[in-house]
């Protein structure tokens, strides 16, 4: 029964047991399907936004793959932070897609600041739940509150990858006006979606 017995003395492993054990425990706890699961849950959202921005199926696939890989590599660091994984993932996809359309060379590793957004930028849990329940109708209503110029400024920036200065140049509008349009547009959408509270309670 015992045949290919093959002792293989290798270099001494002096790595801390704790690091090894903790990773084993995570697998034992069933975390091994994490990437698969994450992808299944957010693939449509990720691909849709990437496709909307790049308008190129191949590029969108690359963006999505790159974004999920980045998330996977950095999941452990992210876990320490508190915030919506969906929002975090979305921001990675968005940044990668914008990079792609700006023809910037994508960085192989995202800087920490991008991976773990400052606390102020993290969406409160309460909002995340609200957002998760938004149906297409809510989204349509929110988008409908935007004036044409607000929508133009927001869409050129968010979907077109233009900086505020580029939006100003493109629309022949003063920079301050562009900033106002963006801010007022986002605030208007927010009021539609959270009619009962116009200020976010610090969570």
């Amino acid at each position: 029964m015992s045949e290919t017995i093959r002792p293989l003395p290798l270099r001494v492993a002096t790595v801390a047991d704790d690091a090894d054990r903790s990773c084993l425990m995570r697998i034992a706890a069933g975390g091994s399907d994490a990437l698969d699961e994450l992808y299944e849950r957010y693939k449509t959202m990720a691909y849709s936004i990437a496709y909307r921005i790049t308008n190129d199926a191949t590029l969108a696939e690359d963006v999505v793959q790159d974004a999920f890989l980045g998330a996977w590599r950095n999941a452990e660091r992210y876990v320490a932070g508190k915030g919506s994984v969906k929002t975090w993932l979305l921001s990675i996809v968005h940044h990668r897609a914008i990079d792609a359309v700006r023809r910037r060379k994508p960085t192989t590793e995202l800087p920490d600041v991008e991976l773990v957004p400052p606390a102020q930028f993290q969406v409160p849990d309460v909002w995340a739940e609200v957002a998760a329940e938004l149906d297409a109708d809510d989204v349509r209503r929110a988008m409908a509150t935007l004036s044409d110029v607000q929508r133009e400024a927001i869409e050129l920036a968010y979907f077109g990858g233009l900086t505020q200065q580029e939006v100003a140049d493109r629309t022949n509008t003063p920079l301050g006006t562009v900033k106002s349009r963006m801010r007022l547009g986002l605030m208007a959408m927010r009021r539609v979606l959270t009619p009962d509270e116009h200020e976010v309670e610090p969570s």
Partner: peptide, 9 residues
């Protein structure tokens, strides 16, 4: 907080 809504649109 509104940005995910843009993405959902």
């Amino acid at each position: 907080s509104v940005v995910p809504v843009l993405a959902a649109s």
